Simulated scan of single mutants.
Amino acid sequence: MDISPEGIARIQAFEGLKLTAYQCSADKWTIGYGHTAGVKAGDTMPPGQAEAFLREDITLICLQLDILLKVTVRQNQFDALGSLLFNIGVKAFAHSTLLGKLNAGDEAGAAAEFPKWCYGTVKGKKVALRGLMARRQQEKARFEAVELSLMKAPHRVTA
């Protein structure tokens, strides 16, 4: 499965585009749309490179989800999980209670885990970050969404 164009657009909006390297709340050097591999202080890039890194990062996220997910998920769920994994990293996601609950068939329990991933380290202290709280609420809502095509009422013919 792939992250949908809407899912990618959400990740871009959450991450924002920064063409100069910066340290994120986890103290990792980051550039583009949340790209961290090989980034160091002082790095810069053109927008086209940021798009290329994003495509590469999304491909890796999809591969990891295909490996880690033991259950079938809907597109909206895959998009939400991809956004979370993009942000917290493979190691954290692979060992998460969220993934464990989902793979055990507990979708509601998995959804309830999203808000727990809102913490970052600021000045050596673990704190809830407003931006991550908002992101997790949106990811949770996307994960829980019922696809509109499933919600359509059957057409009735009246005489």
Rank of each mutant, 00 (worst) to 15 (best):
A9W: 14
F143C: 13
E56P: 09
F143W: 12
K18T: 00
K125H: 13
K140P: 01
L17I: 08
L85I: 15
T20H: 10
V71P: 00
L69S: 07
F114N: 03
A37S: 11
S149Y: 12
L98M: 13
K70P: 06
E6C: 10
D57K: 06
Q12G: 00
D27T: 00
L129Q: 07
E51N: 13
L65C: 06
A80D: 08
S149G: 07
I58F: 03
V90T: 08
T158E: 10
L69K: 11
F14N: 05
A9R: 13
Q75L: 11
L65Y: 07
Q23C: 05
D43P: 00
S4M: 01
K101Y: 11
H95W: 15
F86V: 01
V73M: 03
Y33L: 07
K125L: 13
V73G: 03
A9K: 11
A92P: 12
E51F: 10
G34M: 02
A94R: 12
G16C: 07
I3P: 06
A111N: 01
G109M: 08
A145T: 03
D57M: 05
Q75P: 06
L148N: 09
G42F: 08
R156D: 04
R10H: 02
L99S: 03
Q137W: 05
A37L: 04
T20I: 08
I61L: 05
A9H: 14
T20Y: 04
T72S: 06
K70W: 08
L102D: 09
A145M: 07
S149C: 07
L98N: 10
V73Q: 07
R142D: 11
G42M: 11
L63A: 12
G16A: 15
R156Q: 10
S83C: 14
S149D: 14
S83M: 09
K40E: 06
P46A: 02
G7L: 08
